[in-house]
Amino acid sequence: MEDGNSIIYGLEHQTRSLSPQYAESEAIRFLIGTQSLKPNSNQVHVVELEEDTGALHTKVFKHDIGEIWHLRCSPHDAANLVTTHNTYDPNTLQCTMGVSIFKLPTLQVIPKDLDELSSLQGRNAEDLELLVTIKPEKAEEEIRCAEWHPTDAGRLGVVYESSVRVHDVSSGAAVCSMKSDGRTRLKLTAGKWNPHQGHTQFAVLQDMHIKCFDTRTDCSKPSWSIDNAHRQLVRDLDFNPNRQFHLASAGDDAALNIWDYRNGKEPIFNRTDHSHWVWTVRYNSYHEQLLLTGSSDGRGLLYAAASICRDPDDDSEKTGKILEDGVLQSYEQHEDSVYCSEWSTVEPWTFASLSYDARLVISRVPRPFKYKLLL
């Protein structure tokens, strides 16, 4: 795979959920969930990039439980994943959301020999092993997403429309609950564990605001909050992996904001390069000044936010080893809203973006920017 040449993988059904295989340490793999309204037609695709040749290898698994709205691979076991899904019941004519934990029957994607390749080519979608399903307390309650705890393999944070509950992975039972302020009707839209502060904090997005709760307390009040983080709905957030007080957020005001939540009145970095809603933002795990965004304008953008990532004694600016703030590259191979952008957890220069038109685009950071960071 050469720099500047993206690889496109097309699916049969519409898509809006993507996750790297976090616990995988060698292969560049992404998992995709489909969102088809047809009964028993949804799937989970495992896509592996062969780095030397640029070839894509895939495995397809059935997800008959319903359309997938969110998917996240386990950071503890490469075989486990969790999906947030919507199921239509023809008997009651109603849709019910749920969260299901599955296990992949195999981790192998690239065939070892020609005989195995021939057998794989004629094979239909395989079954996933269902471990547990978590259902809302009320059938009509919506579920936004489910996030694995960063260090505790037995805990899962689930964001509902009006609360967050931490569930036991084995039984599905709720062990902790955080409810939104009863005086407001503002619904939650997403959430994520804080990878710092002892992995006890869970941040949620509520309308235009970001609020973070400590799961060791009664969760009646947030530990910290950023009010009016965006002028319109906040869609996504991601914590800086290296700086414990920094996080990035994206919203319907077409903005990318970076915050120091110790003083959340004004962002420390702000860009409005998209022309429509920004659905996703992701920090590079190795190089914190690199970020990805995806938007309803059909573009994925690669950003540099170098000016806020320098330490006081850092002389990289004098030596020229620093990127200029702003958009480094625009990726426009999509024809619909880009709902997800994710970095590979194995190769720091490789990333993927996914749009609603069932198109996965795998790209690499252009060589000039890569060398400027390394040399």
Rank of each mutant, 00 (worst) to 15 (best):
D297E: 06
A254L: 10
A352E: 10
Q201N: 12
G157T: 02
D207E: 15
C309D: 09
S19W: 03
S74L: 04
D181Q: 01
R155Y: 07
V46F: 00
H196P: 11
L292K: 04
E335V: 15
Q43E: 14
T83Q: 05
R299W: 00
S180V: 11
E161I: 04
L328A: 06
A190S: 15
Q21V: 11
F61Q: 01
R216N: 13
R243T: 01
F245M: 12
H246W: 10
A254E: 13
Q289L: 01
N86G: 14
E317H: 03
D253A: 03
L130Y: 05
A174I: 13
K59V: 02
H230V: 02
Y9T: 15
C212Y: 03
I68V: 12
S100V: 06
Q244V: 02
V166R: 14
L49D: 10
C145W: 05
D252N: 07
V166S: 13
E266I: 08
D181P: 01
F30V: 03
E342Q: 10
R183H: 12
N86M: 13
A23I: 00
E137Y: 04
N257L: 03
P111C: 02
L18D: 05
L360N: 07
N228H: 13
S119A: 12
Y88I: 13
S162K: 10
T280M: 12
D313S: 10
W224M: 04
F61P: 05
S170H: 08
Y303N: 12
P366Y: 04
R72C: 09
Y303D: 09
L156D: 07
D3T: 09
S180W: 07
K265W: 00
E347L: 08
P20K: 12
L373N: 09
E161V: 04
V60Q: 11
I308V: 07
T87R: 11
W259L: 14
D273E: 12
C95A: 12
T280L: 09
W279S: 09
E288H: 11
T15E: 04
V338D: 04
S171I: 09
D314G: 06
R235L: 06
A248R: 06
I143L: 08
V365G: 02
D89E: 14
L233K: 14
Y371F: 00
R271A: 15
Y9L: 09
Y356V: 06
C340F: 00
D52Y: 05
T92D: 06
L233T: 15
W259A: 11
N42E: 14
L302N: 03
S220K: 04
N5H: 15
E51F: 09
N5F: 12
E126T: 11
A173Y: 12
G191Y: 01
C219F: 00
G300F: 00
L302M: 03
I65L: 06
K187Q: 15
R72E: 14
K221R: 15
A248V: 01
D325Q: 08
S118V: 07
S316D: 15
D315I: 07
N257A: 02
D168R: 09
A254C: 14
P241N: 01
P39E: 10
H57G: 00
L247S: 10
H196Q: 08
L93K: 13
E50A: 03
L233H: 13
G251H: 07
K179S: 10
H334W: 04
G298I: 02
P39R: 04
E24F: 08
K138V: 03
T92H: 06
T293H: 02
T106W: 00
A305M: 01
L120S: 14
P75I: 03
E140R: 12
T345R: 13
D127S: 10
S341W: 00
C145R: 11
